[in-house]
Structures are given as C-alpha cells and as structure tokens.
Simulated scan of single mutants.
Amino acid sequence: MQRVTVTLDDDLMEQIDRAVSERGYQNRSEAMRDLARAGLQQVAVEGGEAEDSIGVLSYVYDHKARDLARRLTNTFHHDHDLSLVSTHVHLDHERCLEVSILRGPSGDVKHLADHVTTERHVMHGKLVLIPWSDQSDG
C-alpha cells in the first residue's frame, strides 16, 4: 500500500467523517478507499472505458397503458442476451415496478435501458451500471 497526503476543506472532511460514523468504517482510510473505488467505477462506466457491465434497471410504469406491457416484453426479447433476470411488483391498481438485472457491453446495456425508460407511460426509471469483467482481479 502507498500513503497519500491530501488536503480537504473542512466541509468535505465533515461529510467524510459523517460517512465514516454512519456506515461504521473502521477509519477514514477505509472510507476513502471505498469512495475512490466507487468514483473510479463510475468514471470507467461513464467514459466508456468499461467494456462490459452489470446493470440494474428499475422502472415504474402504468400497467393499464395500452400495449405497454407487450412493447416492454418485446424490447427485452429483442435484447434477450443482455437480460439475466427480472422481478415484477404490483405497487397499486395502476402501477408496477420492475427490476431487471442486465449484463453485457456497457453501450448495449445503456441502449436497452434508454429504450425502456423512454417508453410512454414509464413514469420513473433508473439504471445503475457496475463495470464487469469475467476475469478475476486477483
């Protein structure tokens, strides 16, 4: 391991100390390593550096909307190689929540998620991407 010295303003240090306390980190170093890893993952995904990714797509939609369920099903069938599993929850009489776990090239996963979340009567949608490699990091 290497030791790094960083200068942080007081407000940022307070936020980090709060995260250390709330999450139960052993020390600031553990928190900083986690924050650095999370930031690097996000940069890799957003910058297109991560070729493959795991995506968690969650979205809420109006299940009574005409043909929406059929269109969504067709979208997932079209990209069946990206979809690992989905779960469906009835929120109330009109709305459903679906959560789908996807795996594949980051661009393809983003494209599928965009196609789903921009469908008319899909009210809320969010994709979380995590860089993925079939090779162990050791």
Rank of each mutant, 00 (worst) to 15 (best):
R120F: 09
H78S: 11
V60M: 01
A113G: 06
L12V: 12
L129P: 00
H88Q: 03
L57K: 04
D114W: 03
A38N: 12
S29P: 04
Q42F: 02
E98W: 00
E46A: 12
R23P: 00
S133H: 13
G55Y: 02
S136L: 14
V99F: 05
V89D: 05
T5E: 09
K126G: 05
S83I: 14
V6N: 05
G47A: 08
H80L: 10
R28A: 12
V60E: 04
T75G: 02
S136H: 14
G47W: 01
R70Y: 12
A113K: 01
G55Q: 06
T118V: 06
L127N: 01
S86H: 10
S58P: 06
M13H: 05
L72N: 02
D52L: 15
W132I: 00
V85T: 11
Q135Y: 11
H115K: 15
L8N: 03
H77V: 14
Q15L: 15
G55F: 08
L12W: 03
V43P: 04
A113I: 07
H124D: 12
T87M: 12
I16A: 00
Q135T: 14
Q2W: 07
P105C: 12
V45H: 04
S106Q: 03
H88I: 02
S21D: 13
Q41C: 09
V6H: 09
A65F: 04
P105Q: 15
T117H: 10
V20T: 07
Q42G: 02
R37T: 04
G39C: 06
D9Y: 03
H93W: 02
A113S: 15
V43N: 03
S86V: 08
E119D: 08
D81G: 06
D62M: 06
E119V: 06
G107F: 08
E46M: 12
A65C: 10
G138W: 10
D81M: 09
D11Y: 10
A19H: 08
G104Y: 04
I130C: 13
D11P: 02
A50Q: 05
Q2K: 14
